[in-house]
Amino acid sequence: MADTTSTLEAPQPGRYSVPGPPPRPRSQLVGTGFAIAAGAMAVAGALGHYMARRHASGIDPGHDWLAGQSVPNPQLVYALITLLVSVVTAHWAVWASARGERSHTWVGMALTLVMGLAFFNMVMFSLNRMGLEIGSGEWATLAFAVTGLSLAILIVGMFYLGLMTLRSLGGSVGRDRSTPLGAAVFFWDFAVLAWAATWYVVYVVK
């Protein structure tokens, strides 16, 4: 395969008159949007599968869908509220970033990450309290799969937010550079929404 190492040849007049690549601030935002679309379809597909199985089990009156499993919802509600508050702090960080207020940006991001960790703590506590055993029945297996998918998306969101926070500490934040942070928060919004949908379908409607 023929390779050459030089850059493009001398520009032809009128054809290569724009020097150098321009900044592409929207690329990360648009890419995040596509990732969100894929994630949304994954969650929707998994929830659709869950609901279809639940519907199928309803045909058989002798079938116990939950297999005697109790679901402690108060803790999960608190966990959801924590996530919703983290959305507010995340948007606070973006708002501050767009105005060049670095200290507010960092405080907002730090609060978001702390609340994210608190959420995981609450969810793990709830699942342990439920004694949800993977493979113990159809509902438990599906609930584990769908919950795991949503939690995985939240973990990706936390990682994305953490990465952008580190970049902001490195100086990549400000009026003209807030889009990457906004992209991470955009993904966080989606992750929270995906969890809310999962919580409603699996733990409220069951």
Binding site: A2, T7, L8, P11, P21
Partner: peptide, 12 residues
């Protein structure tokens, strides 16, 4: 083929 690496200038 076009040379490897990103273009130094963009076409208009």
């Amino acid at each position: 083929p076009p040379p490897l690496g990103p273009a130094a200038a963009l076409p208009e």
